[in-house]
Design a protein around this nucleic acid. Structure first.
Lengths: 337, 337
DNA sequence: CTGAAAGCGCTTACAG
DNA sequence: CTGAAAGCGCTTACAG
């Protein structure tokens, strides 16, 4: 059995209150004699006392814990965000529970309920979809919440997103300047506004140059099993538009799979202009000339935590005023590797 | 405020006990009238009742939560393991708290203490070092614990590891069969037994063929900032052994960095025999001929969870018998991509 | 200077 | 068929 306040109290023949005051550093304030405090510290150390955080949270009504839900922890973008968020939260005295929604709405809902049941003080979430989601419940309850990466205009809550349209526009514009004329866009899940914005940026860059936005150059890979689906998509594009000369990948995952396809087919990457949103280390060796919109990982994480903690505080102050929603739009640095 | 049992009880003019029995599905067993049960379920639904898991855990003495501590969540090996462990635990009714030790012993110790304070029922851990660690405390307290990936013979607890020596041996042997004669080993942190075993397997394959184990072919990259350190290491090897014709990378991270170096220097990868422990998707495009020891991710995760849960159960049964330690050694599949 | 007591939200042995 | 009560391990307002 773990040692509790009671154990120390009994051993020293003091009350639990005295032990609690002392160990929480309020001994002086309560005027507990130095001798007693000394004994308490001594005994706590001997018994290797660690406060039970569940009991503390139960009493205090908050847990100093935030929940983070991401679609895929093995995706380097999300795992890096998780890393930053954990570090940021830690500095503010919060710990983080991470949950993997696997891009499944049921899993996401389950995690939201679990985290609430575990009394997290707030949730940071990269949502997968929006249909009949627990997110709406959170918003209705004005539960402290920050969404990131994916955007649903109909949900009235805090957001941290990047300027997907502008980043895509810049990337595609760069490819055009560098000589590309028939640029394909390889993307996924068009029901995600994030992906739509990327497509719009792509279209804007083309239209600005009076290039047509050809349906044949649009490749949408279903998100599930995209490893297998991308081949078909690329086959079709190469068939329909043999002189395609550029590829804009809306995610790094699609880019990796495409590079594998290029390799399998013996197609030389160097002949094409390339661009991608977010970078991973292997790009340096795989496609060093690729244009990248670098995700501002640190800023995303820091802003998410900052906004969430603000929201938690105002929530705890019972300020019944209607929450003001905060939306942060961050910008990617665009460059080659 | 969230709704509690008390709220429902007051609203229905019943006792908290009745509500609790009903909602936990033991209403029939306790002979609570169907009419009452119906009302309770109805009301719980209306008020969107969710039990407070902190309170439940506090009472029950267990939290149905396990802690997972890994050195780097952005490393695909660990994040995949985390994914499997979460899925496996979920099936058994456990949730997982993930912590990032950043390969720092202080952070690891802090996480162990935090998880204990949060009353996790057990911990799965890929340890970073062993010096004066909280791990020893866990073992002394016979706290349910499973280590994986890294091995410390002096710690008497459960382990799940792969056969690092044999996997390395097989990989290097394959390279020799394929014609390599001067094989460099690129590795890190020799104080980790895991890395030492990989080196020993490398040496065994060489010695078996009566090849010398040349110190000039041993490249150890310090783990911190290895991005920058690997260049020096490779420079030295190419300088000292210009006719090096094979590279054995003890981790995928080192391989990626080396490939970037090869690219930067304009060295053609294809001229070399390559081998690496663990694979990532971009290898398919980066170095398709590379020999890989495929980590049995699923088995590692499943075994870790299985052993931990067994340990938790025997712990909860207060069986004072000395824990029997379980060590599982798994094997990698060796092949090209 | 220190303690008794209430309460956070749950569960469960006991009573009737 | 249902309830009163104790207790999990904390914290804190109140009392002396």
């Amino acid at each position: 059995m773990r040692t509790s306040l009671k154990d120390i109290a009994e051993k020293l023949k003091l009350s639990k209150a005295t032990i609690s005051w002392t160990l929480s550093g309020k001994g002086d304030e309560k005027g507990i004699s130095l001798a007693t405090q000394e004994k308490v510290f001594q005994c706590a150390k001997e018994l290797n006392y660690q406060p039970n955080l569940l009991a503390r949270s139960l009493h205090r009504g908050y847990s100093k814990t935030i929940g983070l839900i991401i679609p895929d922890i093995t995706d380097s973008f999300y795992s890096k965000i998780a890393c930053v968020i954990e570090k940021e939260a830690d500095e503010q005295g919060y710990s983080v529970m991470i949950g993997n929604s696997e891009s499944k709405i049921e899993k996401e809902n389950k995690l939201i309920r679990l985290f609430k049941a575990k009394q997290v003080d707030g949730i940071i979430l990269a949502p997968t979809k929006v249909s009949k989601s627990e997110i709406e419940t959170l918003v209705d309850e004005s539960f402290p919440l920050v969404l990131f990466d994916r955007y649903f205009p109909q949900i009235d809550t805090n957001y941290v997103i990047i300027d997907n349209e502008e980043s895509s526009y810049q990337l595609v514009r760069k490819m055009i300047v560098d000589g590309a004329r028939k640029i394909a866009i390889i993307t996924t899940n068009s029901y995600l506004r994030t992906m739509n914005m990327r497509r719009e940026g792509y279209a804007r860059a083309l239209m600005e140059m009076d290039f047509p936005v050809e349906p044949e150059l649009y490749g949408e890979v279903p998100f599930v099993d995209y490893e297998h689906n991308i081949d078909k998509t690329l086959d079709t594009i190469f068939h329909d538009v043999p002189d395609v000369d550029g590829f804009f990948f809306s995610t790094h995952i699609l880019a990796i799979e495409a590079f594998r396809y290029f390799y399998d087919k013996g197609i030389d990457l160097k002949k094409y202009e390339l661009a991608c949103i977010h970078s991973i280390p292997s790009f340096r060796a795989l496609a060093p000339k690729i244009n990248i919109a670098f995700m501002p990982i640190d800023e995303i994480g820091e802003n998410a935590v900052r906004i969430l903690l603000k929201s938690i505080e105002s929530h705890q102050e019972q300020s019944k005023e209607k929450k003001k929603v905060e939306t942060v739009v961050l910008h990617c640095k665009i460059s080659t590797l």
